[in-house]
Design a protein around this nucleic acid. Structure first.
Length: 363
DNA sequence: AAGGCGGGGTG
DNA sequence: CACCCAGCCTT
């Protein structure tokens, strides 16, 4: 179709003068391409860039990544969010280093089968590292196509994914799929942006349906997002000399595999913060005033907005006698609690941002 | 089909 | 504040 040829040509022409120089551009090592794509899932380039440098420097090969302990990988990942990416990445590295003898799969199906690799990431790796003709479909592509073709289908549905994927595949230049995928994503990120697209200098302006119909600001459409649920965390920070008690989050919940303090979650916002220390003691001990425990202070409330949750956390700090038996917690003391040095906690263990904020602001 | 899963930048 | 970002996985 003529309009497809126009779209492709104008896109390439634009891209010639507007490439961002990034370390993974032109990279053919599938390991590094894969690493960059996992890091960049739902993540802005500027945010992911230092993490990419850090990971490639620390783990130059897939075998080096496979040999690292998961906790070390998570610490390097700390602050990037969506931590299951790091867990899947580590599992995949071990799978490749072991079962696949260190050889990265070189077919779309083989790549797509790796944990943490969906349709987008498989197409990106296949086209960038192996030159295979698979079109990427990410947030940028959805936006560019919805506007240029005037597509009203809400993009956050499986039907839209099928529709846009088919269209993207038809538009792909099979002769240079990698360059085409780079071009359309760079165009979406740098020119056809969500808020203030540069329509006045757009190379596609002649045939953009959304511009002609005044729908640029409205497209792409989405179904309404679900309201954020609130959660209320009360943490017990038990200091014991130079140590502190911590635990690893292991449930199928937010911040899985990250570290925190002994936690009591409340169903609703606490009405009286000054009552929280006693609430914690009642929760963790069978006696109301266990010997050898003194309240140090109660923190201010910390608030963190996630994509789907609003978390409020208050930290109650206690000092425990170093030699007392007070750590024989008599109830609600899972065996996963660990006593670690405070220095170790800060330097080695990966923690959620809200815990980091509290920890760095302590008097 | 719907919901869970982070964190940061931007208007 | 709301929205969005080189999405994936489970139910």
């Amino acid at each position: 179709m003529e309009v497809f040829r126009f779209f492709r040509q104008q896109l390439f022409s634009w891209h010639t003068g507007h490439q961002r120089p990034l370390p993974w551009k032109g990279e053919r090592d599938p390991y590094k391409v894969w690493l960059s794509e996992i890091i960049l899932q739902q993540t802005r380039v500027e945010q992911g860039l230092p993490y990419y440098e850090r990971f490639t420097a620390t783990y130059p090969t897939v075998r080096r990544l496979a040999e690292a302990p998961l906790d070390e990988v998570l610490k390097l990942w700390e602050g990037l969010g969506y931590y299951s990416r790091a867990r899947n990445m580590h599992a995949t590295a071990r799978h490749i280093a072991g079962e696949l003898h260190g050889i990265f799969p070189d077919t779309y199906a083989g790549i797509r089968a790796l944990p943490g690799v969906g349709d987008y990431t498989a197409a990106a790796i296949a086209s960038f590292a192996f030159g295979l003709p698979h079109a990427v479909l990410d947030g940028n592509v959805y936006r560019v196509l919805a506007r240029f073709f005037g597509i009203e289908t809400p993009v956050d549905t499986p039907a839209a994914k099928r529709e846009f994927q088919a269209l993207a595949q038809q538009l792909l230049d099979p002769g240079r799929p990698g360059a085409y995928n780079q071009a359309i994503m760079d165009f979406g990120a740098g020119h056809c942006t969500p808020r203030q697209p540069a329509c006045s200098t757009c190379p596609l302006v002649e045939r953009c349906v959304a511009l002609r119909t005044g729908a640029v600001q409205r497209l792409p459409t989405k179904n309404r997002a679900a309201a954020k649920q609130q959660r209320f965390f009360v943490y017990a920070v038990f200091y014991q000399g130079k140590n502190v008690w911590v635990r690893k989050r292991d449930a199928a919940d937010i911040w899985r595999n990250l570290y925190e303090f002994p936690l009591l979650e409340l169903p609703k916002a606490p009405t009286d913060p000054s009552a929280l220390p006693q609430l914690l003691l009642n929760h963790f001990f069978s006696v109301g005033h266990p010997a050898g425990i003194a309240l140090r202070r109660v923190s201010k409330p910390y608030r963190q907005t996630l994509s789907h949750r609003i978390v409020t956390a208050i930290f109650c700090e206690f000092d425990l006698d170093e030699n007392s038996e007070s750590l024989v917690f008599q109830k609600n003391t899972p065996s996963d609690w660990q006593l670690v040095e405070q220095i170790y906690f800060k330097k080695i263990l990966a923690v959620p941002r809200i815990v980091e904020w509290f920890w760095n602001e302590r008097p």
